[in-house]
């Protein structure tokens, strides 16, 4: 680094110091553990009108369903952009020739992968009952799908299939919302009876929505990892 750029560093330092002071002063004022919990209390008082044992799920998919839709769109935008950025390098050889991790890891991972998939699906399907849900489970699923690639050092990710899953799951999420609209209710209004809280089959359409979220997140992350692996060529020098 040149000398001139080193001498300039007091500005960011000053900025960071000022910000630290500002933020500390601010958050010292907030009553910790006793904050205004207006909306939270209202949701509590509604007593699980959506039938979800996990109230966080009720918020994520019910009360703030539009946020979740936007978030899925952000993941989609990131995966699409990453594909766009890295696809320009496609003309170079696509074969990925790293050695893999060896026999031991390969067999271990083939044993582990179905288990991981099972755990992922379990977490997704119980999102309305326990802590967990589509995002957490989706990440586990994505990792399960990605492990063989890591172990064998070759691509096993089918991008066409992934495009269908990510597109289809997102579209179904919206269509379930539109179905409520067609029935005369509001967009993204939870459908079907809430059922008995705590049962596996409860909370109306929320588990279905979470399943779609799980699929989409899984596909999206697998696509992102896949793009990065395809591009990671050992030939490129620093």
């Amino acid at each position: 680094m040149s000398r001139s750029s080193r001498s300039m560093e007091w500005t960011p330092l000053l900025f960071s110091g000022g910000l630290a002071f500002f933020l500390f002063a601010l958050f010292a004022v907030i009553p910790f553990g006793d904050t205004a919990m207006k909306v939270g209390t209202m949701i509590h008082q509604q007593g699980g009108e959506l039938g979800a044992a996990n109230l966080v799920t009720a918020v994520v998919l019910g009360y703030r369903g539009l946020d979740t839709l936007g978030e899925l769109a952000i993941l989609f935008a990131a995966a699409t952009s990453a594909g766009l950025v890295l696809s320009n390098t496609r003309q170079r050889t696509r074969s990925i020739k790293n050695k893999g991790l060896g026999e031991l890891f390969e067999s271990a991972i083939s044993l582990l992968m179905p288990l991981l998939l099972l755990v992922g699906v379990y977490i997704v399907l119980h999102g309305h009952l326990t802590p967990g849900g589509g995002f957490q489970g989706g990440v586990v699923i994505a990792v399960a799908l990605f492990l063989p690639t890591l172990a064998r050092g070759e691509m096993v990710i089918n991008h066409h299939l992934i495009q269908w899953i990510e597109g289809g799951a997102g579209a179904l999420f919206i269509l379930i919302g539109v179905a409520a609209l067609i029935q005369g209710a509001a967009f993204l209004q939870p459908l079907m009876a809430a059922g008995e809280v705590g049962r596996f089959l409860s909370a109306g359409t929320l588990p279905v929505l979470y399943l779609l979220v799980g699929l989409k997140v899984g596909a999206e992350l697998a696509a992102l990892l896949g793009h990065l692996v395809e591009d990671d060529e050992p030939g490129v020098q620093q």
Binding site: V56, V59, D67
Partner: peptide
Amino acid sequence: DPVPQAMVLTAIV
């Protein structure tokens, strides 16, 4: 409060 937890979930993703 469940609402900030849901928001954090969104923000993390």
